Simulated assay, not measured.
Amino acid sequence: MLCRTADLIAEAHASGFGIAAFNVITLEHVQAVADAAQRTGRPAIVQISQNAVRHYGGDVMPLAAATTAAATSSGARLAMHLDHVEDVELLHRTAECGASSVMYDASRLPDEKNTAATRAAARWAHDHGLFIEAELGEIGGKGSAHLPGVRTDPKDAARFVAETGVDALAVAVGSSHAMVTRAAALDLDLISRLRDEVPVPLVLHGSSGVPHPTLRSAVEHGMTKINIGTLLNVAFTRAVRRALAEAPELVDPRRYLTPARSAMTDTIADCLTALTAPASP
């Protein structure tokens, strides 16, 4: 069933469990999230990034429609979220496409401009009944919030939330986007300090590079929403390569997309079991 992101995050935040959010690119990604959530009895968030929208010619509606259809027909609790949205036009299509939340990303801007742009985005989102996540980004010339070595200062994070009114904050604690090996180490003490200073749920981006035990520790120390994308693509691509290597004559995409979808489903189910509370009986 299609749920509201705000409800899933609020439940996870209150219970001390994480809520896993998976970035999707193809219909197979969407089906894999729905199938894994159904299999495990866990809720999940399906995320469509601005990059994924760009892949489809800039139109969010086809992938959003597929996500809505998959969620509506599933017995699992699924929410739809737009991720890393920098374009205001796409931001303003959040409700129209069926998503109940958006991550507005002005983190490339200098701090004052990021704060102003995010405040305006949060105002718009709340006027339309939407949950909004943001990212603090560059402070004092530190560069991108997810470059190695960059860390979010708890005081800066608390100030940013107070000045913008966002509902959740993505923080830099040691993970990086697009990691294909699970070797990232998180600053768990910093997560605890952020939890104590910041009055909204914390979000971990770049979680594909973090081992499950460390992700569980991150949740125990205060992280709520765990974003996972590259891990699915690694499983997908490995399965496709294996299928084509075993049968080079294959031309029917169903013959290699089926094992790719199955591999992603197993990967997602493993993440959900590790991070997310089971459904209530």
Rank of each mutant, 00 (worst) to 15 (best):
L186R: 08
D187P: 00
G140P: 09
D153G: 01
H146C: 09
A157V: 06
A185L: 05
S175T: 09
E163C: 08
L169H: 02
A134F: 09
H177R: 10
R159M: 00
R151T: 06
A134W: 08
D156L: 12
V180T: 15
E135M: 11
H126F: 09
R159A: 11
T152P: 02
D156G: 13
D187W: 08
I191Q: 06
D127I: 09
G149E: 08
A162D: 13
F131R: 05
A168F: 01
L169M: 11
A168K: 00
A170L: 12
L194F: 04
K155Q: 15
L190Y: 06
E138D: 15
G137H: 00
D189K: 04
L186P: 02
L190D: 10
L130R: 01
S192Q: 14
G143D: 07
G129E: 12
R151W: 02
I132P: 01
E163H: 02
V171E: 02
H177L: 12
H126C: 13
K155H: 14
I139T: 15
A168G: 03
L194C: 04
V171K: 04
E135F: 11
R182A: 13
E138F: 08
L188F: 03
A158H: 05
A157Y: 02
T164D: 04
A134Y: 06
P154Y: 00
A178V: 13
G141S: 12
T164C: 10
V161H: 04
L136F: 04
L188N: 02
I132E: 04
V150N: 06
S175C: 07
E133S: 14
V166M: 09
L147Y: 12
I132N: 05
A178D: 13
V173N: 03
I132L: 15
L130I: 11
A162H: 07
K155A: 15
S175Q: 11
F131I: 05
L186K: 00
V173K: 00
D189L: 01
H126V: 07
V173W: 00
R193E: 15
R193Y: 10
H146G: 01
G143K: 01
A158V: 01
S175G: 07
D156T: 12
E133R: 10
